[in-house]
């Protein structure tokens, strides 16, 4: 549905986007993750035809965004970082205007506007002026505007920025609901958002794609070793030494710095599950096994790893 090949954007000497390539399949929700200034907005602006790329090409719904911009734009809904509202217009007037320039047929205009007002829960604000709306409502009107002409592709630049927690949940539900019918690319620097709404993640840093995968795979793949959390009641015995002796275990460290605590992090060789051996060993020693569970690297840690460590970034799988 969306295909981006070797996209590069330079502003003078600054390279904002550097050789970015990725694909988004029909109905998929792709998360675009990266620190501020990583090139997320620039990439999205290229996809929506707002700015041209310096090199490379991008197609949306089969249309090249540079060669056939009108056709591509007809099939794209876009929520920019700041919702593009006209303060002097009421919400309904605004949506009506957007419907006109997006090419919604005059006969359907009213139904479409009503439908998106319902869907984004802005009914009670429909007669308010856009300039008088709170940040949360502005964002929702922006989203309403993006889905107004029922586009195949939705590009959302930080759709939950500035919302309160309740609105964030509503917006995420809305976006998840839109997935399936629509192909969605959304950018964010909030990690839980990605794992909650997206099927695939592109991590971008300093204009380059550093990782592309599902949120689950990313957390699993980028983990160097398997880590287990173990809590034992050993009655003061030397647990680390005993556990290090278990075959496959590479390192044991205290998970809790308080003295006398029985919590440890046990690292094993990559791809080797040592839970059975570990449990048997603890039990045969006569200690109490209180807890044993795999520790997953959170997306935050993965993100930090790929965006801060250069070597890690180089090893990371490319799209």
């Amino acid at each position: 549905m969306i295909e981006v090949q070797h996209l590069t954007k330079r502003y003078g000497r600054v390279t904002a986007v550097d050789d970015v390539s990725f694909r988004v399949e029909r109905g998929e929700i792709l998360g675009f993750l990266g620190p501020n200034g990583a090139g997320k907005t620039t990439t999205m602006r290229i996809l929506t035809g707002y700015i041209p790329a310096s090199e490379g090409r991008a197609t949306v719904a089969g249309y090249d965004v540079f060669d056939q911009p009108i056709e591509a734009k007809r099939r794209t809904g876009y929520l920019p970082e700041t919702p593009p509202l006209y303060p002097d217009m009421t919400v309904r007037e605004y949506l009506d205007f957007v419907a006109r320039i997006k090419g919604v047929a005059a006969a359907e205009r009213r139904t479409r506007v009503d439908a998106v007002i319902q869907r984004t829960h802005i009914d009670d604000m429909a007669t308010r002026h856009c300039g008088k709306l709170s940040k949360g409502y502005r964002q929702r009107v922006g989203l309403a505007q993006a889905i107004l002409h029922n586009p195949e592709v939705l590009i959302l630049d930080e759709p939950t920025a500035g919302l309160d927690p309740k609105q964030i949940i509503e917006t995420r539900d809305l976006i998840r609901g839109l997935g399936g019918d629509h192909t969605i690319v959304l950018s964010t620097h909030i990690l839980p958002e990605v794992s909650q709404t997206c099927q695939r993640v592109v991590i971008i840093n300093k204009g380059r794609v550093v990782a592309v995968d599902t949120p689950e795979n990313l957390t699993a793949r980028l983990q160097g070793a398997e880590t287990l959390y173990v809590e034992v009641d050993a009655g003061g015995a030397d647990v680390p030494t005993a556990l290090t002796a278990v075959p496959g275990v590479t390192r044991v460290a205290a998970a809790d710095t308080r003295p006398g605590s029985g919590a440890f992090e046990v690292e094993s060789e990559r791809g080797r599950d040592v839970r059975r051996e570990l449990a048997r060993d603890i039990v045969t020693r006569g200690w109490g096994l209180l807890e044993l569970r795999p520790m997953r690297m959170s997306l935050e840690e993965v993100f930090l790893q790929v965006t801060t460590e250069e070597p890690a970034a180089e090893e990371a799988p490319r799209a």
Partner: peptide, 14 residues
């Protein structure tokens, strides 16, 4: 200044 130009330029109008 207000960013609404982004709406116009990303809409299917020339």
């Amino acid at each position: 200044r207000s960013g609404t130009i982004e709406l116009l330029l990303t809409s299917p109008v020339t």
